[in-house]
Design a protein around this nucleic acid. Structure first.
Lengths: 291, 291
DNA sequence: ACGTCGGCATTAGCATCGCTGATGTGGACC
DNA sequence: GGTCCACATCAGCGATGCTAATGCCGACGT
């Protein structure tokens, strides 16, 4: 079960093909085949079916563990390696809906303080944001999600990163102003099970949420919030969105949600210890937290 | 950073000696030396000082990560491997103070239900209990600790095990009946900073707790609660203990704690999924949880 | 101050592991 | 039933990582 084999296993699980995984990892197909065989021999359990290549139940379980383990390994390496972070660097990873003008303000302030600062923002999916912070690829992360008021987000286990809530706003159902629903004072999400929803996994883990079994509607694979809002405004389907975002958009109406109780929450992700000093990341974190 | 090297590193960190670690792991001293060198080369950081052998700051950090990683690795292996648990086995790991008569009752009930049951109890320290459950060495764990009322225990990150609170009782300061403190109605722990405390790490993570900087008194390295109570009764020092235990003991008096607000809490540790069926572990867990 | 001892580092040699490249094999699809 | 595609298997070889022997250096004693 060395990490090498786990990485290969994950690549096969993702691509669904030995040869594709081999290419991705710059191995020969033979090597991948042998590595998977070694892993299965080690665990005395078939992890994959061949023809077609698919995960067995044991493989499913291993996949979950393996992805966590690899992130933690990378996090450990990063944590030990980074002696003193290069002081002029600041990389912030964030999910699209975690964006907030306060971030821009804080960054601006930081840049006036230290002219030499190389700041960089990176948009990514939620798990990737957390992983990036844990592994040191990013110095700070901002993630969002929908939960019950003042409940923390349920983030994936990844490295030693810690999350602190920094903002909450009401969650509303975004509909086109012309939509019949737009005249409603409030809605119960479970009443909307039959409606069409826009599924935009790259923008938010769940724009159709968190009642299971909602009807799949249009799927949008981009990361741009404007496009998503535009799609909703054009009547392509409903989406649960933070209220401030919806009110900004002229042709969108936000309908408050009566049940379940739901807010849009943004959390700041950071490594506890390291950033104690006056590094830009620590400064920015402080600015955002105590806004 | 393969697990092999991490294991060796941990052994060196624990024993404080390359040769001792080598012996423990059935390697030659040369191999250990080379492995540590490889690890340091890989991370481009000295992890240990030699002569005397001690952890550098980077080494300290790695130690924390490594122990977590190895447990998670073992947990992953156990989770994938255990296809169907041998139905006649039930191993419960617990910390000394997590013991509760209800456990005995539940076990008794279980044994009448299935005569073939091989039940086994294992006493261990808290981290080891959690690790044992995560790695599948134990089917169920019971851990205890002191926290604010209805706060969960702060358990070490280990594997995918989950903890559920099953019991809480008031925390009191245990003193000999003859002790002047025994006449007090209540005490503030921070007022007792100057008192002598019994330090019994093998019984409870903190019998002197959770105010930092309390004065070290007698140290007891055994696991037996009776001995600890006896030491307190004999006036060797104070200890924070769960109230039921103290009232049981004739010559001990329990003084309620006014601040900080503190309870003794017992949590059940188990693997979420697997034990869904009618396995003894699932039965026992259900019995304890819904008592 | 110097010698001795104990413990980590270094080196040589060798077995094993894990990769590549070539070839084998079986299911799917026409 | 043939062909093709993708995974399995095999031979060979370089790299890895171990043991055993030896070197080296700081601590401690006289």
């Amino acid at each position: 079960m060395d990490p090498h084999l786990l990485r290969t296993f994950l690549a096969v699980a993702e691509t669904g093909s030995f040869s594709a995984a081999a290419e991705q990892l710059r191995y020969t197909q033979s090597a991948v085949s042998q590595q998977i065989a070694a892993l299965e021999a080690d665990l005395r359990t078939p992890l994959l079916t061949r023809r077609p290549v698919a995960l067995t139940p044991a493989g499913e379980r291993l996949r979950g563990h393996a992805s966590i383990l690899l992130v933690r390994l990378a996090a450990a390496r990063a944590d030990v390696t980074r002696a003193v972070a290069p002081p002029g660097r600041l990389i912030v990873a964030l999910t699209p809906l975690a964006w907030h003008p306060a971030l821009a303000d804080a960054l601006a302030l930081l840049r006036t303080e230290s002219a030499r600062l190389t700041a960089r923002l990176r948009l990514a999916e939620r798990d990737q944001v957390v992983a990036a912070v844990a592994t040191g690829e990013a110095d700070l992360g901002l993630v969002d999600g929908f939960t019950a008021p003042s409940d923390p987000l349920r983030l994936p286990d990844t490295g030693g990163a810690r999350a602190i809530g920094v903002a909450e706003s009401p969650a509303v159902v975004a509909v086109a102003a012309s939509h019949p629903l737009a005249r409603r004072r409030r809605v119960d999400l479970s009443d909307l099970a039959d409606a069409y929803w826009i599924d935009a996994p790259a923008v938010a883990a769940h724009t159709r949420l968190p009642v299971d079994g909602l009807r799949p509607g249009l799927r949008y694979d981009g990361q741009d919030v404007t496009v998503l809002a535009g799609l909703a405004a054009a009547g392509h389907g409903l989406a649960v969105l933070p209220e401030p975002l919806v009110t900004t958009h002229p042709s969108l109406t936000g309908v408050p949600i009566s049940a379940p109780r739901l807010v849009h929450r943004v959390e700041l992700v950071r490594i506890p210890a390291h950033l104690t000093g006056g590094e830009p990341a620590a400064r920015l974190a402080a600015l955002i937290e105590h806004r």
